[in-house]
């Protein structure tokens, strides 16, 4: 990667910091949002300029056009009262995108390793931590995707907004968590694309189970938490792809999103633990 590209990535990262800073003050909020948008656009244009053998450019631009049309349409059409579920939906698709990117990168890593093995070279192309970060991105990205869709369904009243609890829920929850951890360990020890896909599926179920017991009134806090999750997955993806802008941008959102979740919970006089798991203990959180 040329030095000037790395410098522009740094400038974009500064743009994200200024965007968050601006968004936290009433006078500067709108400008902050625009600075963030500008930094994001510059960051996404860069690979088209500096990557030597970027394939499928017309198809990718077409996909960006489709996504832009969908995003603008959704963001403009939504009623003011439906803003939180729209944010949840946007957050969910971001988490889904991160999981897919990590799956593709896992596939690429396996191909590189196979090519090395075929040459008879006894080396590991990627360290164990890269596989661990890839597994993290696949799992948590899927959790964020499925969880956000359930929060959307709850707020949009496509399903009941009351906490949904059934007898085996804590057991199923624990099993999915164990499955996620186990498959992540397998990704590090015996990576295979099938394991990555299984990790994705377990993450989807876990995401659904995570959000079902939350009552409608508490859903915005869960959206904020899932937003922080997606930020962390993007950061892990940045590490896997060796991209500083993804790492910084994702980490900023992960950290500020977690902190914001605590602030929102405090403003409501609740603890995050009680919001997430209160219904399981019998202390109901009515929506």
């Amino acid at each position: 990667m040329p030095t000037w590209v790395q410098v522009v990535y740094l400038l974009c990262a500064i743009g994200f910091i200024l965007a968050l800073k601006g968004l936290s003050g009433p006078r500067t909020a709108r400008r902050g949002n625009l600075v963030g948008a500008a930094a994001a656009v510059v960051g996404c244009v860069l690979p088209f300029i500096y990557v030597d053998h970027l394939d499928h450019v017309p198809l990718m631009i077409g996909a960006i056009a489709v996504g832009t049309a969908g995003g603008v349409f959704g963001a403009r059409k939504v009623q003011m009262t439906q803003m939180p579920q729209m944010v949840a939906l946007f957050n969910g698709v971001g988490g889904g995108a991160a999981a897919l990117v990590a799956l593709l990168e896992l596939n690429h890593m396996l191909e590189v390793q196979d090519a090395l093995d075929a040459l008879g070279a006894d080396v590991d192309a990627y360290g164990w931590f890269v596989y661990a970060a890839t597994a993290f991105t696949i799992f948590v990205g899927s959790v964020s995707f499925a969880g956000s869709l359930i929060t959307f369904a709850k707020l949009q009243e496509l399903m009941t907004s009351r906490p949904v609890v059934f007898a085996g829920l804590p057991v199923a929850f624990g099993l999915m968590l164990l499955g996620g951890v186990g498959l992540s360990v397998l990704t590090v020890t015996d990576a295979a694309i099938g394991i990555g896909i299984a990790l994705c599926l377990v993450g989807l179920v876990f995401g659904v189970l995570l959000v079902l017991p939350v009552g409608g009134a508490d859903v915005p806090i869960v959206i904020s938490l899932l937003n922080a999750f997606t930020g962390l997955t993007v950061a892990a993806g940045g590490y896997v792809l060796s991209n500083t802008l993804l790492l910084v941008g994702g980490t900023l959102v992960g950290a500020s999103g977690t902190f914001l979740t605590l602030l929102m919970a405090r403003a409501m006089g609740r603890s995050v633990g009680n919001i997430m798991f209160g219904a399981l203990k019998g202390g109901s959180t009515l929506g």
């Binding site: 994200f16 965007a19 968050l20 968004l23 936290s24 003050g25 009433p26 909020a29 902050g32 949002n33 963030g36 948008a37 994001a40 960051g43 996404c44 860069l46 690979p47 088209f48 990557v51 970027l54 990718m60 960006i64 803003m83 939180p84 944010v87 946007f90 957050n91 971001g94 995108a97 991160a98 897919l100 990117v101 593709l104 990168e105 690429h108 915005p220 959206i223 904020s224 937003n227 997606t230 930020g231 997955t233 993007v234 993806g237 940045g238 792809l241 991209n243 802008l245 993804l246 941008g249 994702g250 900023l252 959102v253 500020s256 999103g257 914001l260 602030l263 929102m264 403003a267």
Partner: peptide, 23 residues
């Protein structure tokens, strides 16, 4: 500003688009 900040931070992690383009 809690909700707009959450929404703005949400947009920032859309930078995963850059990763999607690279892969």
């Amino acid at each position: 500003l809690h909700t707009p900040l959450m929404s703005g931070a949400n947009a920032i992690h859309g930078i995963i688009l850059l990763g999607a383009i690279l892969v």
